[in-house]
Design a protein around this nucleic acid. Structure first.
Lengths: 340, 340
DNA sequence: GTTAGCACTCTTAATCGCCGAGTGCTAACA
DNA sequence: TGTTAGCACTCGGCGATTAAGAGTGCTAAC
């Protein structure tokens, strides 16, 4: 069977109507409220074909049709029109305190959730391939020193390192210079075993501190705990009856709360070749508990190699046009803010 | 009317049964499953009295009785027996990485939520009255310097300060020494205007940096954004049918997510004279959306003057005994961990 | 190829009646 | 005087039944 022009138009109308109402849409509705001059009977015939081809589904006999995952996919890929929108509010918020990345991210999820009425998430950028900008050791008290690690994009990490032996200021200064001259401007991948043992040699009896610092750097990068994820607007889920059945809502909110699963989604997104906007419809998503949702993700970048993911989680009948253009604008804004 | 021994026993039995089942409890149940040797008819008479006195409520004629806020209050204040319990899991978790306070707090809410099956929250300790341990300025690049502020209890804050003029290493060292000698060991309250102007004078042309650092310190303390609150187990709410009506659950989870309201609760708790365990039953809570819940809070302390709040949010028929003793043990564990 | 009409299906909401749990009252009992 | 047994009464919950409405599929006519 052929997916001709008219079938496409009808499918388009069905999906758009469903996006608005959330109710299964019947043939009569399409016949009345679209500019195709066709009777409901004709529409019915076409709908029957579309169902056979797998683009729409009947929840039960004698209900209207709703789009299938395949239908949504076609819609997202071909039927959606580009549309411009402003997200000025976001820009303002972000300009205010770019020094505190965490705060920016929290603001972004909050504002984005309010603007879109869906649940949102954002992952803090990962060090991956990012250059170290600055390392500093300081003695805090007799038993521990503080290592501050700053990477490109002004991502800051603190690590307290316990010490056994005494350390005078001069030694700390030496270690500082050693660490900075050796590691400054290097990406994580460039720090190899040879450099580490070279540093240890030069540090002499304090070689164990070098180990600790390197460990701290590595840990900050690799550990799953290092993947900070912020979420917002979880309760927006209750706006959509098809998601707010007690069981589903609870499961979804738990996923958002635990963040462990979301980390997988972020990893998956970042590993995609195409770093633009990704759309996961229903069971396309790597997260089991989101099989009744759609997830739209976008990758943002601070400096080179320092990437994070923004995601929007909503019902399958999400307003894709709006969400995708909002995300696109947001990406530009973020670039603007971080690159100056 | 007098609240005699027998009435107390019956009230106790009613509340305990209700805590277990969540269903209104009838006279026959009490007569059968308590060790009072009384017939259901007698119990009925007494229950009628208890209702008149305001300790129990009938949701509708010919349902059993449930405790009123007043009844719960009596229970919490007088009827509960002390009970010991172990919370070893928590201790282990906390010992592991005391260097990263944030991580500890996140772990605490998570484990506590799993142990109790209620929603949990914890506020990061506030600087309030806490001594500064260490301040360090370092030049990160040409346009900004990084201020690291460490307070007692190893609470670390970073602040990036933009600079206009050039600064050489020597000047930074001088400023560092100046800041540390002037501010080290001081509480926030002790840093007064005189000290600030004295420092500015000594800093000469770089006095504006002093302002910025002082501002940063002040901001870190005062701003509402500075009140970090972590929550966990929000979805536990769905375990209790009386809270999981769509409307209520949504409202509650939103409150937990937004954290703004919770900050008020924390402030309220910290301002109480009695710093022990507080119980807010129903409308006693300062948070409107929790009028159908009970909230149990406890104050913990790191060093002197550095305080935070742990809270447990659950249905009114919360297992008070368990929760309160868990919190008590947890407080001891936290003291243990932070004070060594 | 398109459309009008009609019978059929299935869901949803409303209504009815029954059951059981629990109460309140009264009268009998210790 | 306090306790208990018995009984009529109330009310929410639940399943069955019913009616309404929405939408389809099919057929026949245009």
């Amino acid at each position: 069977m052929d997916l001709d022009e008219r079938k496409l138009k009808i499918l388009h109308a069905i999906i758009q109507t469903y996006l608005e109402t959330g109710e299964p849409v019947g043939s009569r509705t399409i016949s009345k409220y679209s500019d195709l001059k066709l009777s409901s009977a004709t529409i019915r015939n076409e709908m029957s074909d579309l169902e056979e081809m797998g683009y729409i589904i009947q929840p039960h006999t004698s209900a209207g049709r709703i789009p299938s995952d395949k239908g949504y996919r076609l819609y997202v890929d071909h039927l959606m029109e580009e549309k411009e929108r402003e997200v000025t509010e976001l820009k303002e918020l972000m300009i205010r305190r770019t020094d505190k990345l965490e705060q920016v991210l929290k603001n972004v999820v909050k504002v984005l959730a309010n603007n879109t009425n869906y649940a949102t998430m954002i992952s803090a950028p990962q060090y991956h391939q990012n250059k170290l900008k600055f390392i500093q050791l300081s003695r805090v008290d007799e038993h521990q020193i503080l290592a501050v690690i700053v990477a490109e994009g002004n991502v800051i990490r603190n690590k307290l390192i316990p010490i056994c032996e005494e350390l005078d200021d001069e030694t700390i200064l030496k270690l500082n210079i050693l660490l900075n001259t050796m590691l400054n401007g290097k990406t994580i991948a460039e720090i190899n075993l040879q450099m580490i043992s070279s540093m240890k040699e030069q540090a002499g009896i304090h070689s164990n501190i070098i180990s600790d610092v390197v460990d701290a750097v590595a840990e900050a990068i690799h550990s799953d705990e290092g993947m900070e994820i912020y979420t917002g607007g979880a309760t927006n889920i209750f706006r959509y009856p098809e998601l707010s059945d007690n069981g589903k809502a609870s499961e979804l909110i738990q996923t958002l709360e635990e963040k462990q699963m979301l980390a997988e989604l972020v990893t998956e997104t970042l590993n995609k070749d195409d770093k633009g906007i990704q759309v996961y419809i229903g069971s396309e998503s790597p997260i089991q508990s989101m099989k009744d949702c759609s997830v739209v993700t976008a990758t943002y970048e601070l400096g080179q190699g320092l990437q994070g993911t923004i995601g929007i989680i909503g019902p399958k009948r999400m307003d894709y046009e709006n969400v995708m253009s909002t995300l696109k604008t947001l990406m530009e804004q973020l670039d603007d803010v971080f690159h100056k």
